[in-house]
């Protein structure tokens, strides 16, 4: 199978939030390095899963790809167009191809708007600016089609979000994201606020839509099992850096980075027999604060396998074969040999 075209390419993306002090004259005294130089690409039809613990910069990555936060530096290329340097109109046009689904289905829907208005809003925005040509009737029809597609009855379109359960609200969020026929969907923890039985419904819906509409996803989650289920490729993030990127199956079979290994061993598996026999690698300590510039491996403080070289060098993300990229000196040496 030939590789598909690259849809999104992110190069050396950095996003540092300033820490300011002083009441009248604000002075920057430092910065939170939420995303600290990451590279990845998403090909057409692919789902890239981004996984990591809270505070590692997953959501910030998605938001800076969508330009909801302006990146400090780096490039975000959507089909070759650089979004960071794009002006307002260019950005608006580009966003037609790139939509978001948010984590909290309670906070991401305006409680004063009916479901129909919520789903129609993306279209209205573009119609108002003459970037999209649709009549009123077409918009209504499209809303109804979208609602039925995500598993909601079209008769619900005049209801308000509070009349729906969490799972149904997330369906509304999905319908809104699909309204403009995007190519790429940035899904920021779309199922983590839902119960298991509802979670599986939404995951199945997202999988079906991907096949049907030729979508690509950047799928963010902290749950490794969910990520494994939906992704074709997975990137593991820690402290604003990508530690390991690999094909989904390969990563779970053969995790190489000590952080990935520890992360996987920490996930409980719903089977008592396996649970009893498993050996856990329990990491000590917490994730350090990202407010300092680091000159050693980002995982150095907690790594069970650290050695001298990790102390003063930052390992780069290197391909160790079969498109398995890893940022760890332990494995770089093996490649060099």
């Amino acid at each position: 199978m030939a590789e598909n075209n690259i849809l999104l390419e992110v190069k050396e993306l950095k996003l540092h939030f300033p820490i300011e002090e002083g009441l009248l004259f604000k002075k920057q005294v430092g910065s939170i390095r939420a995303v600290d130089g990451i590279n990845f690409e998403i090909r057409e039809g692919e789902t890239l899963g981004l996984v990591g613990e809270s505070g590692c910069g997953k959501s910030t990555t998605a938001r800076s790809v969508a330009q909801l936060h302006k990146p400090t530096s780096g490039e975000v290329l959507l089909e070759g167009r650089d979004m960071v340097k794009a002006n307002k109109t260019e950005l608006l046009k580009a966003r037609m191809d790139m939509q978001m689904i948010f984590q909290d289905p309670y906070a991401s829907l305006n409680p004063r708007m009916t479901v129909g208005t919520i789903i129609a809003e993306p279209m209205q925005i573009y119609i108002r600016r003459n970037l999209l040509n649709m009549t009123k009737a077409e918009v209504i029809e499209r809303v109804e089609i979208l609602m039925e597609r995500v598993g909601l009855s079209r008769f619900f379109k005049n209801r308000y979000p509070h009349e729906f359960s969490g799972g149904q609200r997330q369906r509304i969020g999905v319908a809104r994201a699909l309204a403009l026929n995007p190519k790429l969907i940035l899904a920021d923890e779309p199922v983590s606020a839902l119960d298991v039985s509802i979670q599986s419904q939404i995951l199945n819906l997202l999988t079906d839509l991907r096949e049907e509409l030729d979508l690509s996803y950047l799928f963010i989650a902290h749950d490794l099992a969910v990520i494994k289920h939906i992704s074709t490729r997975i990137a593991v993030m820690y402290l604003g850096k990508i530690m390991e990127v690999s094909k989904s199956a390969e990563l779970y079979k053969n995790p190489l980075h000590p952080y990935t290994v520890a992360l996987m061993s920490a996930v409980p598996i719903p089977d008592p027999k396996i649970e009893r026999e498993r050996k856990r690698i329990i990491l000590t300590g917490d994730v350090p604060s990202p407010d300092k510039e680091r000159h050693n491996c980002y995982f150095y403080d907690r790594c069970p396998k650290r050695f001298d070289r990790c102390k003063d060098n930052i390992p780069a993300l290197v391909d160790v074969g079969d498109n398995h990229h890893i940022a760890c000196f332990l494995h770089h040496d093996k490649v060099a040999e």
């Binding site: 613990e53 809270s54 902290h222 490794l224 520890a262 992360l263 061993s265 920490a266 996930v267 409980p268 856990r280 329990i282 990491l283 000590t284 917490d286 994730v287």
Partner: peptide, 8 residues
């Protein structure tokens, strides 16, 4: 809590 902390 996060998984690694959950395990702890």
């Amino acid at each position: 809590l996060d998984v690694t902390i959950q395990a702890q």
